[in-house]
Simulated assay, not measured.
Amino acid sequence: MVKIKWHRSDSIGSTNSYLRELNGGDPGFDFEVAAADFQTAGRGQQGNKWESQAGKNLLFSILAHPANIKASEQFLISEAIALAVLDSVTQVVEPGLAGDFSVKWPNDIYWKDYKIAGILIENTLQGNLILDSVVGVGLNVNQELFLSDAPNPMSLKNITGQDFDRNCLLEDIVKRFIGYMEMVSDADTASDVDVSSGLGKESVERLYHSRLYRREGWHRFRDAAGCFEARIEGVRTNGLLLLETRSGEQRAYEFKQVQFILPEKE
């Protein structure tokens, strides 16, 4: 049985930083979760600040100890948490809305062209394996008004008009994440969430690819050379995004090397 240690707080600097300071955590637990109603120093990718109204959203991090995941395969953790969040939010909205949720590479969660969740992952390596992984999630749940200059924030309440139980969402996401981690890391623990009929890393990768934002058709992108049109060919095991341009050129990008050009707000 999976053992989870919970750390809950009204306010904290950063849930990721809190778990990192545990120096590997409590050896008596398989996972540790830090959750807060408010973060004074919440972070997104590459130091970006994450806006969240106190007591309205989910702000949490998970400390995991992946079994047998190579450093070169660390993107599997990104796929696992993205799918866990996506599964959870699509289960709580009406079926007619669920199909508009997707994963924007590498691991943002989108509804249509709007961002509802961001993820920050920090790994500690031991040789060529991952020793510890701190997986931070910010999910917009019940906030209605966003004041930052972020281009496209959205919450579940904005989408549905309903309030959601944040604790139920949190516990569901954590259980689903554990299930996906068991699939990709050869863990010998047993979760009580059936996340897929398939088994193993390949199944998780295929599921992730099938739920990518803009996974079909031609779309506009921007790299260091300028704007161009391309379609998504897939994502490599190491996380590189594969694009094919209109001229048939194959391109591979690391995170931040290419941007999706989003529609202008009306």
Rank of each mutant, 00 (worst) to 15 (best):
A190M: 14
D26E: 15
E182V: 09
E73W: 01
W50F: 07
I178S: 02
K49N: 10
I121V: 07
G96R: 05
L212M: 11
D163W: 11
A252D: 11
I116F: 08
E73R: 01
S72F: 03
R211A: 06
S72V: 04
A225N: 10
G47Q: 05
N142A: 12
G47M: 09
G136C: 07
G161Q: 06
R246Y: 09
N107P: 03
E205A: 14
S78G: 07
T189A: 13
I119E: 02
K115Y: 12
R222K: 03
F221P: 00
T15N: 02
I81H: 03
G226Q: 09
G47H: 06
Q74Y: 06
N57C: 11
N142H: 08
P151L: 06
K104R: 08
Q53L: 15
Q143D: 11
G47V: 03
P151A: 12
Y18I: 03
G24D: 12
N140R: 07
T237E: 00
M183P: 01
F164I: 01
R214M: 12
S196C: 11
T124V: 15
S11K: 07
L241P: 00
A41C: 06
A67V: 14
D165S: 05
V103Y: 06
M1L: 14
L199W: 15
I119C: 04
G198K: 13
L97E: 13
Y110C: 00
G198Y: 15
P153R: 12
V2S: 05
R166T: 02
E79M: 11
L129P: 01
L169S: 01
K265I: 08
N158G: 04
V33K: 01
K104D: 04
L169I: 01
P153T: 15
K157Y: 06
Y180M: 05
N238L: 01
V33C: 03
K115Q: 08
D30W: 04
S61N: 04
A117W: 02
F260E: 03
N107A: 09
L199S: 13
F31I: 04
F29H: 06
S196D: 15
N128G: 13
G138E: 05
